[in-house]
């Protein structure tokens, strides 16, 4: 998003020669983002970003290779095969990561769950962030009546409890993955809108914005070329944290009966399905075991998924926002 805005700025600066000197001043005052090519070099040398990228790419590869890594046997590949027995510990033939609630194969769920989680998290967070960004930026920058109307509108949606929106949407439409994502977007975007608005409020008072105003730049141009790109760093932080949070909220919706059904390959759902086993004991090979594996593996995947985006986000911010690099 930020990158494309930048390249357009460069092009227009080149053609508009009459006010070039003032433009240069604004360009100097405004933190600059390097070209994409340079950014890649920076990412390569930023170990946190690289680690995050490696984690994310690994999970994406797992998602793509799911049919190879865990060949489906049932009617719907997204449902985990089960033997309806007590949980069995990991590292046994046929069940490399053991089995969980109703004897569901944890390995299968972990592999196929990568698909679900990637789809849910990215779809929900990015859509919500985009909506929130536009609403928040416009509201914060223009202020006055526009701000008032947009913020009250945001308030309405922000004040709707997530669970209830999800319930209502699930009751009216169908209880499935798509509608759950729809419900999550509806409850998720307002927090981004407020976050961005707060950021814009501060930035619009800053020197480089004043300078841009002084040279008579149009308001929309100032907003989307100057203010928005510089408001992105808290948004990136929020997004990276939310990517994991969405998976967990999706799980809690599934847990009380909305969202994906029990047995669906979704990490959050696997965690809540296995909840009852956390402090239980199951016999295997003549000894009692606490079935730690039922929850740990899907939870670990959620952690890695979150961590991947978080590390990448931190790295990206360092690169995109040179102020914090200095």
């Amino acid at each position: 998003m930020a990158i494309s805005t930048r390249s357009r700025t460069a092009a227009s600066t080149a053609t508009d020669s009459s006010i070039i000197s003032i433009r240069d001043i604004t360009a100097e005052l405004r933190p600059r983002i390097k070209e994409w090519k340079n950014s890649w070099d920076l990412i390569r040398h930023n170990w946190t970003a690289m680690m995050g990228l490696v984690l994310i790419i690994t999970i994406i590869i797992i998602a793509i290779l799911a049919p190879v890594l865990a060949p489906p046997s049932g009617v719907d590949a997204m449902y985990i095969p089960r033997d309806f027995d007590l949980p069995k510990p990991p590292f046994i033939p046929g069940h490399p990561l053991g089995t969980g609630e109703m004897g569901a194969d944890i390995y299968y769920g972990v592999i196929w769950g990568a698909r679900t989680t990637i789809v849910i998290s990215l779809y929900v967070v990015l859509t919500a962030a985009l909506v929130g960004l536009v609403v928040g930026a416009i509201s914060g920058y223009y202020g006055g009546v526009i701000d008032e109307v947009l913020m009250r509108f945001t308030d309405i949606f922000l004040s709707l409890p997530a669970l209830i929106m999800a319930m209502a949407i699930a009751s009216i439409l169908t209880r499935n993955l798509e509608n759950m994502m729809f419900a999550l977007i509806i409850v998720w975007w307002p927090s981004y809108a407020r976050l961005i608005r707060g950021q814009v409020l501060t930035i619009r008072e800053s020197t480089y914005v004043e300078a841009a105003k002084a040279i008579g730049s149009k308001r929309g141009r100032i907003l989307f070329r100057h203010i928005v790109p510089n408001s992105l760093s808290p948004l990136i932080v929020a997004i990276t944290l939310d990517l994991g949070a969405v998976a967990l909220v999706a799980a809690s919706l599934s847990y009380i009966g909305f969202g994906v059904p029990s047995g669906y390959a979704e990490w959050g759902r696997m965690v809540s399905d296995g909840q009852g086993w956390f402090l239980a004991k199951v016999p295997f090979n003549g000894a009692y075991h606490t079935p730690w594996w039922v929850v740990s593996f899907p939870a670990l995947m959620i952690l890695l998924f979150t961590m991947g985006f978080s590390l990448l986000g931190d790295g990206l911010r360092d690169i995109l926002d040179p102020r914090s690099r200095r």
């Binding site: 949070a245 967990l248 939870a299």
Partner: peptide
Amino acid sequence: LIGVSIPVFW
């Protein structure tokens, strides 16, 4: 990171 991604019940 663990704080946000850890299951609450856990």
